[in-house]
Design a protein around this nucleic acid. Structure first.
Length: 304
DNA sequence: GACGCGGGCTATTTTACCTCA
DNA sequence: ATTGAGGTAAAATAGCCCGCG
């Protein structure tokens, strides 16, 4: 169980991994949902360094229309929407420059539409040199503001202009500040999701490695059994092996000491008493089960 | 199809705050 | 108790892309 809280309230939880099959099916499970990486298996939500600059078509926030529902689904395994920690100050002070310093034409146009700021924004402290137009003071949201924003984010991780304006008015912020907060919040959420996905892939890889190791060991044991003289003395005539197509288990070769019916059954192998599936395929030699060529393994040394 | 606009995203900068020596 | 450096989180900015009219 790995649960990490970075102090921002963006807790990472890989709880669902603990109980998962080491070889999860490729299709995402409905409950609990797999992370994006598991769902798409390297198809999306790769770490930033693995993504091209233009990644909007493959990232976790794809089409704008369905983002809310999709994101909630994707983040179902972790609560990345938990309330972030906020500062302790009862009332933060913002600078008059905090949101209007952009010189970009596009941004400037946006700010021109922020007419509500002057009438409804927080009290602005101009007394401490705040009149410096070149400077920029960063607003720190108070607890209540952050809580309302978080609550709103849980409902919609994007806002339409009307919602943005309403929220800004409610919080005595500019719509630009609300917009920026949501933008940064989405970025934080995505970052956390990427971390979770990376952790998931790491564990998935570990499980695959372990499974590969186990299978290699099994193959070697079967080969050793095949080559042993005892094998040949006991398998003439060849033992008929039965494999269950459902669970892929091979029936144990009959042994005179443990199965008194082996002679009567003509050496046909038997499943354990606990086996519930109906055997449907029958093979007549180990060669039918063990492939003639060794399994490829990157870590395997070439055989001489 | 070109164009402008609005909105989203990522990368980066800037600022506030915390910790610790 | 004070202070300054360093680290970190988050607000804000810049620039790009995409969809839409």
């Amino acid at each position: 169980m790995v649960e990490k809280d970075d102090g921002l309230g963006l807790s990472l939880s890989l709880k669902y991994l603990e109980n998962q099959n080491p070889n999860p099916p490729p299709s995402p499970s409905p409950s609990p949902p797999l992370p994006t990486a598991a769902a798409h298996l390297f198809g999306c939500s790769l770490p930033n360094f693995m993504q091209k600059r233009k990644s909007s078509s493959t990232d976790a926030f794809q089409s704008t229309a369905d983002r809310n529902a999709e994101t909630r689904s994707l983040f179902g395994g972790i609560d990345v929407n938990l309330a972030i920690d906020v500062c302790d100050e009862e009332l933060m002070v913002s600078s008059p420059n905090s949101t209007v310093s952009s010189v970009s034409g596009k941004r400037s146009e946006r700010e021109e539409n922020d007419g509500e700021r002057d009438s409804s924004s927080l009290e602005i402290d101009d007394s401490d040199g705040g009149g410096d137009a070149a400077g920029r003071k960063k607003l720190r949201l108070c607890r209540e503001q952050a809580a309302v924003l978080e609550e709103s984010f849980r409902e919609h991780n994007t806002l339409n202009p009307k919602q943005k304006m309403a929220l800004a008015k409610q919080l005595n912020l500019t719509s630009r500040q609300v917009e920026v907060w949501f933008q940064n919040r989405r970025a934080r959420t995505k970052l956390k999701q990427t971390e979770v996905d990376c952790e998931y892939l790491r564990r998935y890889c570990e499980n695959l490695t372990e499974e590969n190791r186990r299978l290699q060991k099994e193959v070697n044991e079967l080969r050793a059994l095949k080559l042993s003289p005892q094998f040949y003395t006991n398998t003439s005539p060849p033992t008929t092996l039965t494999m269950c197509p459902q669970c892929k288990r091979v029936a144990l070769p009959s042994s005179s000491s443990t199965n008194t019916t082996s002679a009567a059954s003509g050496g046909i192998s038997r499943f354990p008493a606990t086996h519930r599936h109906r055997p449907e395929s029958t093979m007549t030699s180990w060669a039918a089960i063990i492939p003639p060529q060794p399994l490829l393994d990157a870590n395997r040394r070439p055989q001489s």
